[in-house]
């Protein structure tokens, strides 16, 4: 039974109010995650089935988005060659916060089948923070969707905070990126 006795309303300080609002925000955020369609590698071939009628991603409130500014999730679908990594980092930095990274396949985890190949990087989390990994080569649509559910859990439990890590360890990430990509000196017919 609810007590009818008058109790003085508890005063929240600013931090607590902020936290409450974040929780409210997270609730909405995790139920309307928008993906950025950047098909970086071969795992991307399982995305159309999981997006269209067969597995229907939209029932989780997810949908593909065309521009990085509107998207919440950067989906890294598969291996990354150096050339892609550069563009991926540009894209990641354009996205508005909070932003999450989901990595599909075994290639971003440890190199996968291309662990000893010269243009493919081995470990994605050296360059940008990753929130959820989906293992498998290639992960089928069920596990892709499962990965997104994991991410939603992560947002709920506040464990998916890669974007905060990126701010905190910005120098470390930048150094790694710089080590592998080198300076941008682009001089070819495509960039006249």
């Amino acid at each position: 039974m609810i007590s009818t006795k008058y109790t003085e309303k508890k005063k929240f300080n600013k931090q607590e109010i902020d936290r409450k609002w974040w929780e409210v925000g997270d609730y909405f955020r995790r139920n309307s995650l928008w993906l950025l369609m950047y098909c970086t590698g071969c795992c991307a071939i399982e995305l159309p089935p999981s997006m269209t009628s067969a597995y229907d991603m939209e029932r989780l409130g997810m949908g593909p988005m065309a521009t990085p500014r509107q998207a919440d999730i950067l989906l890294v679908s598969g291996y990354l060659s150096l050339k892609t990594l550069r563009r991926l980092i540009y894209t990641y930095e354009q996205m508005s916060e909070p932003r999450y990274v989901v990595a599909l396949g075994s290639c971003p985890i440890n190199g996968g089948i291309y662990h000893d190949s010269h243009p493919v990087i081995n470990q994605l989390d050296q360059y940008i923070p990753v929130d959820t990994y989906v293992a498998g080569c290639m992960p089928n649509p069920e596990s892709v969707l499962n990965g997104f559910v994991d991410l939603m859990e992560g947002i709920k439990n506040k464990t998916a905070n890669g974007w905060k890590k990126y701010h905190k360890n910005y120098d470390w990430y930048k150094k790694n990126q710089f080590d592998v990509l080198g300076e941008v000196v682009i001089d070819d017919e495509f960039h006249q």
Binding site: L82, K83, R86, I109, N110, G111, H115, D116, S117, H118, P119, V120, I121, N122, Q123, Q126, V180, G182, V185, I186
Partner: peptide, 28 residues
């Protein structure tokens, strides 16, 4: 195909992609 390649042309037999990969990309 590649961008800012910094080694000998990769399909020559004396190029070792494993050594290059170990040198350049940290592995888990």
């Amino acid at each position: 195909i590649m961008e800012q390649w910094d080694d000998i042309p990769p399909l020559r037999k004396d190029f070792d992609p494993r050594a290059y990969s170990d040198r350049k990309y940290p592995s888990r």
